[in-house]
């Protein structure tokens, strides 16, 4: 028996037709409810989430603005005073084992700038420039302060980049190593039905039902960060979890965007906190602080806005984060991610 020609011919249809069918078109809630009895598994999760959460029934309209809208009054910056690296700008922190030979001593002007980028106060500090292993100094170098500044350490190596540099993933740590995945189950569809470590002692069920849920998986990207301090080793995270959502929306302070960079290797231009809410897990063993963001990314000439829902949890002073970016229908993804965090349980 042969494959009919029309089947092979369909393999030649245009790309945009294929892509058009990889998205999901979701109808209104009434349709969902009408379908409640049939939509098992993932869809049932959605119906339950919608039913339980009046907030999610409010439709696709914009969220009310967060009362504490971010106003960045000042930020700490530094600039090398003269020499080959004087045009370089400060960036992220890099692990010490990525740093190579010392290149030279430099003097650095450091201090606070206002929102317009003008210096408010300055201090002059001595520092050292190092090469980054495997990367030419035309691309990036590392700087370590010899004298401690008000908001910089003498123990960390800060990446410095030439003007208009492309942030290069090779100079950042591989955050995947800090996102351990523990699957307990496998189905015919592969490793798609299991629990993942979340927080210090817990786990969340990331994919509820494998059958027929492939498109759900395609609708969002998620990232788990079990200890935010591993990303912000050079900075002090806020003492109160309530301050974290706003803290992470700062795109001005040097290195503050590391969290966003760790999720897909892109650096956002702006991060707008839209709303926050407290979410309790179904079994009452945990509480999440939920924050919704609008994140603007400029990827070359391709500028776009992404919707993110981020769930924060604190255990013994350690912050863990479950972050979800919706690729498609935001309302659906929000309800689905909510069902995931509500599944949180202490590890058996």
């Amino acid at each position: 028996m042969k494959i009919p020609r029309i089947v092979n011919a369909l393999g030649y249809i245009d790309d945009d037709l294929i892509l058009g069918a990889t998205g999901a078109r979701l109808s209104n809630r009434n349709t969902w409810l009408k379908w409640g009895s049939l939509a098992a598994g993932v869809l049932l999760v959605l119906v339950i989430a919608l039913t339980l959460s009046p907030m999610l029934l409010s439709g696709d309209g914009p969220q009310p603005p967060f009362d504490g809208e971010i106003v960045m009054e000042k930020y700490y910056d530094y600039a090398i005073i003269e020499g080959a690296f004087s045009s370089y700008m400060g960036a992220n922190v890099i692990p010490a084992d990525r740093v190579g030979n010392k290149l030279q001593d430099v003097a650095v002007t450091a201090g606070w700038k206002n929102r317009e980028g003008d210096w408010i106060s300055t201090e002059e500090l001595s520092a050292e420039i190092y090469e980054i292993k495997g990367i030419g100094t035309a691309e990036a170098a590392a700087l370590r302060f010899v004298e401690k500044g008000e908001a910089v350490t003498t123990t960390h190596y800060y990446v410095i980049l030439p003007p208009n540099a492309e942030y290069n993933g090779t100079i950042f740590p591989d955050y995947k190593a800090e996102n351990p995945v523990r699957y307990l189950e496998e189905s015919d569809m592969g490793k798609c039905n299991g629990w993942q470590d979340f927080g210090l002692t817990g786990e969340i069920r990331t994919i509820t039902v494998p059958v027929g849920s492939t498109y759900v998986y395609q609708m969002y990207s998620y990232y788990i960060r079990n200890d935010l301090s591993t990303i912000y080793s050079a900075e002090s995270l806020p003492d109160a979890i309530e301050d974290l959502p706003e803290w992470l929306s700062d795109t001005v302070t040097v290195g503050r965007r590391s969290f966003w960079y760790s999720m897909g290797g892109r650096l956002p231009q702006t991060v707008t906190l839209k709303s926050t809410a407290v979410v309790s897990t179904e079994n009452g063993t945990g509480t999440f602080l939920k924050a919704e963001y609008a994140v603007r990314i400029a990827d070359g000439a391709n500028e776009r806005e992404e919707d993110w829902v981020i769930y924060f949890m604190e255990e013994d002073g350690t912050y863990s984060v479950f972050a979800v970016m919706a690729n498609e229908n935001f309302t659906f993804v929000k309800s689905y991610s909510e069902s995931i965090v509500k599944s949180y349980q202490k590890k058996p």
């Binding site: 089947v7 369909l10 393999g11 249809i13 037709l17 294929i18 058009g20 069918a21 999901a24 078109r25 979701l26 109808s27 349709t31 969902w32 379908w35 049939l38 939509a39 869809l43 027929g212 498109y215």
Partner: peptide
């Protein structure tokens, strides 16, 4: 396209598009 390019079952298509 879902049916004849991706060979989804009728049921899966119904679930996808409600």
């Amino acid at each position: 396209v879902r049916r004849y390019y991706f060979f989804d079952s009728v049921r899966d298509i119904a679930l996808r598009y409600l």
